[in-house]
């Protein structure tokens, strides 16, 4: 049955799909990995059975609506923040569609992610609240934790449009071992001409790789890796290694490129290292989805969940953090 493995193959080379493919499994896995819009564009114009074509057209239509909504949300934030005169850099999906990149084609876009200078955070927060955004997390520990240790404000949601904004001041939590250089990110950002900007190509790849391998538990990892594939194919890797080293992200970036090459055939320079033991586990985790859309490989998943916390903070702090969380919510996770 088709699952994430078939999905990765289809994205890599859609012409290699046979007409007797398990289309239902492929589309279900793609929906579960939030890659169905990207898949639909990869298959656009290729001969597929009629009912498949209908579902793919619907997915492209849905991605177009997501793009429009994301750009509108960015515009709303721009209007709220323009009077501050601060640089506002779009990140992730919204940045890809705003800059018209291949990575944005068909991409699912959830929250609006922006990067602003850390000393402007308070002003940004006030301006957003004045413009109708509200707190999501009422818990004082979570709130304090975000403000002290995270790379972003606690998430805000707009009370009328029901859309979330994540305001970043850097791209990894402050508790993480790696410390990217947020000033350099903002200094190198490319203006879009409307008061907003996007990261430079190398920084975009660094951010995507940091998000994938230096933070989080690889949930949605296949989509993030597809982003990296598209970015590298579009921009190449000139200057990428030096930039990654500057941010302390040499390892995650090389690792991301290795996986992108292995799964999607991404072109990358020779000598960026060979797969290590962790890479084999990562591959297992990235492809842990079956044709019913179910997550598979629970042990591998759990291992990466544990790793995400180990990456995020030192052991003593982690113990304290989990202790507080466990005491507060004994009934839930």
């Amino acid at each position: 049955m088709a699952g994430a493995v078939t999905l990765a193959r289809a994205l890599r080379d859609p012409t290699a799909l046979r007409l007797d493919t398990d289309w239902t499994g492929l589309i279900t896995a793609a929906r579960a990995e939030q890659l169905v819009g990207s898949l639909a564009w990869r298959l656009h114009g290729l001969p597929v059975p009629e009912p498949v074509a209908i579902l793919l057209a619907e997915a492209r239509d849905g991605a177009e609506a997501a793009r429009r909504t994301a750009l509108w949300e960015a515009e709303m934030a721009r209007r709220a923040l323009a009077p501050l005169g601060l640089p506002v850099v779009l990140l992730k999906g919204t940045a890809y569609v705003a800059a018209g990149l291949a990575a944005g084609q068909g991409r699912h876009i959830g929250d609006l992610d922006v990067l602003v200078p850390r000393d402007g955070l308070d002003a940004v927060e006030q301006a957003l609240i004045a413009a109708g955004w509200e707190w999501v997390k009422p818990d004082p520990y979570d709130d304090a934790y975000y403000r002290r240790w995270m790379h972003e404000l606690p998430p805000l949601i707009h009370r009328e449009r029901d859309r979330m904004i994540d305001v970043h001041h850097t791209i990894l939590p402050l508790t993480a071992r790696r410390r990217p250089d947020p000033d350099a990110l903002i200094a190198a950002a490319r203006p879009l001409g409307n008061g907003l900007a996007v990261l430079s190509p190398s920084d975009m790849i660094c951010h995507a790789a940091a998000h994938l391998f230096a933070d989080g538990d690889l949930a949605g990892g296949l989509r993030n890796l597809w982003d990296i594939h598209c970015l590298v194919e579009e921009f190449g890797v000139d200057g990428l290694e030096a930039r990654a080293r500057h941010h302390g992200l040499g390892d995650p970036v090389r690792r991301a490129c290795r996986h992108a090459r292995a799964l999607f055939g991404t072109a990358m320079p020779q000598g960026w290292g060979k797969d290590d033991a962790l890479d084999r586990l990562i591959r297992r985790r990235l492809l842990a989805r079956d044709g019913w859309g179910r997550p598979t490989r629970p042990v591998t998943r759990f291992a990466f969940y544990v790793r995400s916390h180990a990456l995020r903070m030192p052991p003593a702090m982690l113990v304290r953090h989990l202790w507080i969380k466990a005491r507060r919510r004994p009934a839930s996770s």
Binding site: T28, P49, P51, L55
Partner: peptide, 30 residues
């Protein structure tokens, strides 16, 4: 259907909840 548009899953909330106090989580594509 020639090809289903959507998948719906009725899954045990936890592996043991297939048999012990069976409880189902409803999930699917959306």
């Amino acid at each position: 259907p020639e090809l289903p548009d959507y998948t719906v899953r009725l899954e045990a909330l936890r592996p043991w909840r297939r048999w012990i106090r069976p409880a189902m989580a409803v999930s699917g594509d959306y």
